[in-house]
Protein backbone atom coordinates (compact mmCIF):
# COMPACT_ATOMS: atom_id res chain seq x y z
CA UNK A 1 0.00 0.00 0.00
CA UNK A 2 2.74 2.41 1.00
CA UNK A 3 4.60 1.74 -2.20
CA UNK A 4 1.52 2.41 -4.27
CA UNK A 5 1.02 5.65 -2.49
CA UNK A 6 4.59 6.68 -2.72
CA UNK A 7 4.16 6.15 -6.45
CA UNK A 8 1.05 8.27 -6.41
CA UNK A 9 2.90 10.99 -4.59
CA UNK A 10 5.68 10.89 -7.14
CA UNK A 11 3.17 10.99 -9.96
CA UNK A 12 1.44 13.94 -8.36
CA UNK A 13 4.74 15.84 -8.05
CA UNK A 14 5.57 15.11 -11.66
CA UNK A 15 2.14 16.27 -12.76
CA UNK A 16 2.62 19.42 -10.79
CA UNK A 17 5.91 20.12 -12.49
CA UNK A 18 4.54 19.47 -15.98
CA UNK A 19 1.51 21.56 -15.24
CA UNK A 20 3.56 24.47 -14.06
CA UNK A 21 5.72 24.34 -17.14
CA UNK A 22 2.58 24.21 -19.27
CA UNK A 23 1.23 27.13 -17.33
CA UNK A 24 4.34 29.17 -17.92
CA UNK A 25 4.33 28.39 -21.63
CA UNK A 26 0.62 29.10 -21.92
CA UNK A 27 0.85 32.36 -20.08
CA UNK A 28 3.78 33.50 -22.14
CA UNK A 29 1.99 32.35 -25.26
CA UNK A 30 -1.17 34.16 -24.18
CA UNK A 31 0.76 37.29 -23.39
CA UNK A 32 2.35 37.19 -26.80
CA UNK A 33 -0.89 36.58 -28.68
CA UNK A 34 -3.01 38.78 -26.44
CA UNK A 35 -6.39 37.28 -27.30
CA UNK A 36 -5.85 33.54 -27.48
CA UNK A 37 -7.67 31.71 -24.67
CA UNK A 38 -5.91 28.92 -22.81
CA UNK A 39 -8.41 26.32 -24.03
CA UNK A 40 -9.98 25.95 -27.46
CA UNK A 41 -13.34 27.64 -27.30
CA UNK A 42 -16.47 26.37 -29.00
CA UNK A 43 -18.43 29.57 -29.62
CA UNK A 44 -16.33 32.50 -30.36
CA UNK A 45 -13.77 34.21 -28.23
CA UNK A 46 -14.34 34.34 -24.51
CA UNK A 47 -12.86 36.42 -21.80
CA UNK A 48 -12.24 39.18 -24.18
CA UNK A 49 -12.39 41.67 -21.37
CA UNK A 50 -9.73 39.73 -19.40
CA UNK A 51 -11.75 39.47 -16.18
CA UNK A 52 -10.76 35.80 -15.79
CA UNK A 53 -7.10 35.02 -15.29
CA UNK A 54 -5.49 31.71 -16.27
CA UNK A 55 -3.05 32.00 -13.47
CA UNK A 56 -5.95 32.25 -11.00
CA UNK A 57 -7.42 28.96 -12.29
CA UNK A 58 -4.14 27.14 -12.12
CA UNK A 59 -3.32 28.55 -8.75
CA UNK A 60 -6.66 27.32 -7.49
CA UNK A 61 -5.98 23.87 -8.87
CA UNK A 62 -2.48 23.89 -7.51
CA UNK A 63 -3.81 24.69 -4.05
CA UNK A 64 -6.30 21.84 -4.11
CA UNK A 65 -9.22 23.31 -6.02
CA UNK A 66 -12.07 21.17 -7.34
CA UNK A 67 -12.26 19.33 -10.65
CA UNK A 68 -12.48 15.86 -12.13
CA UNK A 69 -9.34 13.81 -11.67
CA UNK A 70 -8.13 11.90 -14.69
CA UNK A 71 -7.29 8.61 -13.02
CA UNK A 72 -7.24 7.86 -9.34
CA UNK A 73 -8.71 5.40 -6.91
CA UNK A 74 -9.64 8.32 -4.77
CA UNK A 75 -12.47 10.41 -6.16
CA UNK A 76 -12.53 13.22 -3.68
CA UNK A 77 -12.74 15.79 -6.44
CA UNK A 78 -9.23 17.03 -5.85
CA UNK A 79 -7.11 17.44 -8.98
CA UNK A 80 -3.80 18.11 -7.35
CA UNK A 81 -3.35 17.42 -3.67
CA UNK A 82 -1.63 20.34 -2.11
CA UNK A 83 -0.66 18.19 0.87
CA UNK A 84 1.20 15.83 -1.41
CA UNK A 85 4.37 17.85 -1.19
CA UNK A 86 4.33 17.86 2.59
CA UNK A 87 3.63 14.14 2.59
CA UNK A 88 6.25 13.26 0.07
CA UNK A 89 8.84 15.19 2.09
CA UNK A 90 7.86 13.28 5.21
CA UNK A 91 7.68 9.84 3.68
CA UNK A 92 10.58 9.81 1.21
CA UNK A 93 13.43 7.35 1.85
CA UNK A 94 15.60 9.94 3.52
CA UNK A 95 12.69 11.71 5.18
CA UNK A 96 11.98 12.13 8.89
CA UNK A 97 9.60 9.18 9.21
CA UNK A 98 12.18 6.67 8.02
CA UNK A 99 15.03 8.44 9.78
CA UNK A 100 13.43 8.80 13.20
CA UNK A 101 11.63 5.47 12.89
CA UNK A 102 14.81 3.54 12.29
CA UNK A 103 16.63 5.46 14.99
CA UNK A 104 13.84 4.57 17.40
CA UNK A 105 13.95 0.85 16.66
CA UNK A 106 17.77 0.86 16.78
CA UNK A 107 17.64 2.63 20.15
CA UNK A 108 15.34 -0.02 21.59
CA UNK A 109 17.64 -2.79 20.37
CA UNK A 110 20.69 -1.02 21.74
CA UNK A 111 19.05 -0.38 25.10
CA UNK A 112 18.15 -4.05 25.41
CA UNK A 113 21.70 -5.07 24.59
CA UNK A 114 23.12 -2.65 27.11
CA UNK A 115 20.65 -3.87 29.72
CA UNK A 116 21.50 -7.49 28.99
CA UNK A 117 25.22 -6.84 29.27
CA UNK A 118 24.85 -4.75 32.42
CA UNK A 119 22.15 -6.68 34.29
CA UNK A 120 22.18 -10.10 32.63
CA UNK A 121 19.34 -12.51 32.85
CA UNK A 122 16.81 -11.76 35.59
CA UNK A 123 17.16 -14.84 37.77
CA UNK A 124 14.62 -16.58 39.94
CA UNK A 125 15.32 -15.72 43.60
CA UNK A 126 16.30 -18.96 45.27
CA UNK A 127 16.25 -20.94 42.03
CA UNK A 128 13.46 -23.17 40.82
CA UNK A 129 11.39 -24.80 43.54
CA UNK A 130 9.84 -27.52 41.39
CA UNK A 131 6.38 -26.49 42.55
CA UNK A 132 4.11 -25.16 39.83
CA UNK A 133 1.49 -22.45 39.89
CA UNK A 134 -1.09 -22.13 37.14
CA UNK A 135 -0.73 -18.75 35.41
CA UNK A 136 -2.18 -18.66 31.90
CA UNK A 137 -5.19 -20.59 30.64
CA UNK A 138 -5.09 -22.53 27.41
CA UNK A 139 -7.29 -19.90 25.77
CA UNK A 140 -4.85 -17.17 26.83
CA UNK A 141 -1.89 -19.14 25.52
CA UNK A 142 -3.49 -19.89 22.16
CA UNK A 143 -4.63 -16.30 21.67
CA UNK A 144 -1.23 -14.97 22.73
CA UNK A 145 0.70 -17.12 20.28
CA UNK A 146 -1.67 -16.56 17.39
CA UNK A 147 -1.16 -12.85 18.01
CA UNK A 148 2.58 -13.43 18.27
CA UNK A 149 2.74 -15.10 14.85
CA UNK A 150 0.53 -12.43 13.29
CA UNK A 151 2.68 -9.75 14.95
CA UNK A 152 5.85 -11.23 13.46
CA UNK A 153 4.36 -11.55 9.99
CA UNK A 154 2.88 -8.07 10.00
CA UNK A 155 5.95 -6.62 11.67
CA UNK A 156 8.43 -7.99 9.15
CA UNK A 157 6.33 -7.17 6.09
CA UNK A 158 5.40 -3.76 7.48
CA UNK A 159 8.99 -2.81 8.29
CA UNK A 160 10.01 -3.95 4.81
CA UNK A 161 7.43 -1.63 3.33
CA UNK A 162 8.38 1.28 5.54
CA UNK A 163 12.16 0.99 5.48
CA UNK A 164 12.72 -1.15 2.39
CA UNK A 165 13.24 1.69 -0.07
CA UNK A 166 15.83 3.26 2.18
CA UNK A 167 17.67 0.19 3.44
CA UNK A 168 16.90 -2.73 1.16
CA UNK A 169 17.18 -1.27 -2.34
CA UNK A 170 20.88 -0.46 -1.82
CA UNK A 171 21.46 -4.11 -0.88
CA UNK A 172 19.20 -6.21 -3.12
CA UNK A 173 18.51 -3.77 -5.93
CA UNK A 174 15.27 -2.39 -7.27
CA UNK A 175 14.03 -5.49 -9.12
CA UNK A 176 14.36 -7.78 -6.13
CA UNK A 177 12.90 -5.16 -3.86
CA UNK A 178 9.87 -4.73 -6.08
CA UNK A 179 9.19 -8.45 -5.69
CA UNK A 180 9.72 -8.36 -1.93
CA UNK A 181 7.54 -5.28 -1.66
CA UNK A 182 4.57 -6.68 -3.60
CA UNK A 183 4.78 -9.95 -1.67
CA UNK A 184 5.00 -8.05 1.61
CA UNK A 185 2.06 -5.88 0.70
CA UNK A 186 -0.14 -8.87 -0.13
CA UNK A 187 0.79 -10.71 3.05
CA UNK A 188 0.46 -7.54 5.14
CA UNK A 189 -3.03 -6.80 3.85
CA UNK A 190 -4.08 -10.42 4.28
CA UNK A 191 -3.01 -10.73 7.90
CA UNK A 192 -4.43 -7.36 8.89
CA UNK A 193 -7.96 -8.57 9.60
CA UNK A 194 -6.58 -11.55 11.56
CA UNK A 195 -4.67 -9.02 13.67
CA UNK A 196 -7.92 -7.20 14.44
CA UNK A 197 -9.65 -10.42 15.51
CA UNK A 198 -6.63 -11.47 17.57
CA UNK A 199 -6.45 -8.05 19.20
CA UNK A 200 -10.04 -8.25 20.35
CA UNK A 201 -9.48 -11.81 21.64
CA UNK A 202 -6.26 -10.74 23.35
CA UNK A 203 -7.95 -7.81 25.04
CA UNK A 204 -10.78 -9.97 26.34
CA UNK A 205 -8.60 -12.83 27.57
CA UNK A 206 -5.96 -10.64 29.23
CA UNK A 207 -8.04 -7.77 30.62
CA UNK A 208 -8.43 -9.32 34.07
CA UNK A 209 -5.52 -8.20 36.24
CA UNK A 210 -4.44 -5.43 33.91
CA UNK A 211 -6.30 -2.51 35.44
CA UNK A 212 -3.90 0.03 36.96
CA UNK A 213 -3.53 0.08 40.73
CA UNK A 214 -1.70 2.06 43.38
CA UNK A 215 1.11 -0.47 43.71
CA UNK A 216 1.98 0.24 40.07
CA UNK A 217 3.26 3.66 41.11
CA UNK A 218 5.69 2.13 43.58
CA UNK A 219 6.79 -0.30 40.91
CA UNK A 220 7.47 2.52 38.46
CA UNK A 221 9.28 4.63 41.05
CA UNK A 222 11.59 1.75 41.91
CA UNK A 223 12.25 0.92 38.28
CA UNK A 224 10.45 -2.40 38.49
CA UNK A 225 13.35 -3.88 40.38
CA UNK A 226 15.13 -4.27 37.10
CA UNK A 227 18.10 -2.44 38.53
CA UNK A 228 18.17 -4.41 41.73
CA UNK A 229 15.97 -4.80 44.76
CA UNK A 230 12.59 -6.49 44.99
CA UNK A 231 9.34 -4.77 44.09
CA UNK A 232 6.01 -6.34 44.94
CA UNK A 233 3.57 -6.90 42.14
CA UNK A 234 0.17 -8.44 41.53
CA UNK A 235 -0.78 -10.65 38.59
CA UNK A 236 0.83 -8.16 36.22
CA UNK A 237 3.38 -5.50 37.08
CA UNK A 238 3.19 -1.91 35.89
CA UNK A 239 5.47 -2.64 32.95
CA UNK A 240 3.26 -5.47 31.77
CA UNK A 241 0.19 -3.33 32.24
CA UNK A 242 1.81 -0.56 30.23
CA UNK A 243 2.47 -3.08 27.48
CA UNK A 244 -1.11 -4.34 27.61
CA UNK A 245 -2.59 -0.87 27.28
CA UNK A 246 -0.02 0.31 24.76
CA UNK A 247 -0.70 -2.74 22.64
CA UNK A 248 -4.42 -2.15 22.97
CA UNK A 249 -4.30 1.53 22.01
CA UNK A 250 -1.65 1.15 19.34
CA UNK A 251 -3.53 -1.92 18.10
CA UNK A 252 -6.75 0.03 17.75
CA UNK A 253 -4.89 2.80 15.93
CA UNK A 254 -3.29 0.23 13.63
CA UNK A 255 -6.61 -1.50 13.03
CA UNK A 256 -8.55 1.64 12.20
CA UNK A 257 -5.83 3.22 10.05
CA UNK A 258 -5.14 -0.12 8.41
CA UNK A 259 -8.78 -0.49 7.44
CA UNK A 260 -8.77 3.00 5.93
CA UNK A 261 -5.64 2.16 3.95
CA UNK A 262 -7.11 -1.17 2.82
CA UNK A 263 -10.20 0.43 1.35
CA UNK A 264 -8.99 3.73 -0.12
CA UNK A 265 -11.78 3.99 -2.67
CA UNK A 266 -14.50 3.50 -0.09
CA UNK A 267 -13.25 5.35 2.93
CA UNK A 268 -10.50 7.68 1.95
CA UNK A 269 -9.67 11.11 0.73
CA UNK A 270 -6.04 11.83 0.00
CA UNK A 271 -5.73 13.81 3.19
CA UNK A 272 -7.31 11.08 5.28
CA UNK A 273 -5.11 8.47 3.68
CA UNK A 274 -1.96 10.46 4.41
CA UNK A 275 -2.93 10.91 8.01
CA UNK A 276 -3.92 7.25 8.28
CA UNK A 277 -0.59 6.15 6.90
CA UNK A 278 1.28 8.42 9.28
CA UNK A 279 -0.75 7.12 12.22
CA UNK A 280 -0.26 3.54 11.01
CA UNK A 281 3.50 3.99 10.81
CA UNK A 282 3.85 5.66 14.20
CA UNK A 283 1.57 3.19 15.98
CA UNK A 284 3.43 0.32 14.32
CA UNK A 285 6.80 1.68 15.45
CA UNK A 286 5.53 1.99 19.01
CA UNK A 287 4.03 -1.50 18.87
CA UNK A 288 7.17 -3.05 17.39
CA UNK A 289 9.51 -1.19 19.75
CA UNK A 290 7.54 -2.21 22.83
CA UNK A 291 7.11 -5.68 21.32
CA UNK A 292 10.86 -6.19 21.03
CA UNK A 293 11.25 -5.34 24.71
CA UNK A 294 8.41 -7.72 25.56
CA UNK A 295 9.98 -10.53 23.54
CA UNK A 296 13.31 -9.99 25.27
CA UNK A 297 11.84 -9.96 28.79
CA UNK A 298 9.57 -12.89 28.05
CA UNK A 299 12.33 -15.14 26.75
CA UNK A 300 16.05 -14.77 27.39
CA UNK A 301 15.64 -11.73 29.62
CA UNK A 302 13.81 -13.43 32.48
CA UNK A 303 14.53 -16.93 33.68
CA UNK A 304 11.38 -19.06 33.80
CA UNK A 305 9.04 -16.50 32.25
CA UNK A 306 8.33 -18.39 29.05
CA UNK A 307 7.07 -21.44 31.00
CA UNK A 308 3.84 -19.70 31.80
CA UNK A 309 3.07 -19.03 28.19
CA UNK A 310 3.91 -22.57 27.05
CA UNK A 311 2.77 -25.01 29.68
CA UNK A 312 0.48 -22.54 31.39
CA UNK A 313 2.14 -22.81 34.77
CA UNK A 314 5.18 -21.20 36.34
CA UNK A 315 7.59 -22.09 39.10
CA UNK A 316 6.45 -20.99 42.50
CA UNK A 317 9.74 -19.17 43.16
CA UNK A 318 9.41 -17.37 39.83
CA UNK A 319 6.00 -16.20 40.93
CA UNK A 320 7.38 -15.07 44.28
CA UNK A 321 10.22 -13.19 42.58
CA UNK A 322 8.08 -11.34 40.07
CA UNK A 323 4.46 -11.48 41.18
CA UNK A 324 4.44 -12.11 44.92
CA UNK A 325 1.05 -10.49 45.58
CA UNK A 326 -0.53 -12.63 42.88
CA UNK A 327 1.09 -15.75 44.32
CA UNK A 328 -0.35 -14.95 47.73
CA UNK A 329 -3.79 -14.59 46.14
CA UNK A 330 -3.41 -17.88 44.30
CA UNK A 331 -2.34 -19.70 47.44
CA UNK A 332 -5.21 -18.25 49.37
CA UNK A 333 -7.83 -19.28 46.81
CA UNK A 334 -6.58 -22.39 45.05
CA UNK A 335 -3.91 -23.82 47.27
CA UNK A 336 -1.40 -22.74 44.67
CA UNK A 337 -1.37 -25.99 42.77
CA UNK A 338 -1.56 -26.17 39.02
CA UNK A 339 -4.64 -28.19 38.23
CA UNK A 340 -3.27 -29.35 34.89
CA UNK A 341 -6.38 -28.29 33.03
CA UNK A 342 -7.84 -24.84 32.78
Amino acid sequence: MCVAFAGLVRKASLMLLVTMMFLVVAVEHGAAQGTVPPFPSQSGPENTLGDQSDSDIWRAIRQGGGGLPGSSEVTDGVLINADGVWWSQLRRPAGPLVRFGSIGIATVLAAIMVFFVARGRLRIDGGRSGRRVARFSLAQRVVHWVMAVVFLLLGFTGLLLLFGRAFLIPIVGKTAFSIIATASMQAHNLFGPIFIVSLVALFITFLRGNSPSFSDLKWVVRGGGMFGGHVSSGRYNAGEKAWFWTATIAGIALSVSGLVLSFPDVLGTHDLLHRAELLHAIAALVFVGFGIGHIYLGTIGTEGAIDGMISGDVDENWARTHHDLWLDDMKATKGGAADGRD
Binding site: G130, R131, R132, D307, I310, S311, D313, A338, G340
Partner: peptide, 8 residues
Protein backbone atom coordinates in the same frame (compact mmCIF):
# COMPACT_ATOMS: atom_id res chain seq x y z
CA UNK B 1 9.77 -28.68 29.21
CA UNK B 2 8.10 -28.24 32.55
CA UNK B 3 7.57 -31.70 33.89
CA UNK B 4 5.35 -31.77 36.88
CA UNK B 5 7.51 -33.12 39.62
CA UNK B 6 5.26 -35.84 40.88
CA UNK B 7 7.08 -38.73 42.53
CA UNK B 8 6.66 -41.87 40.49
Amino acid sequence: MTAHTKPL
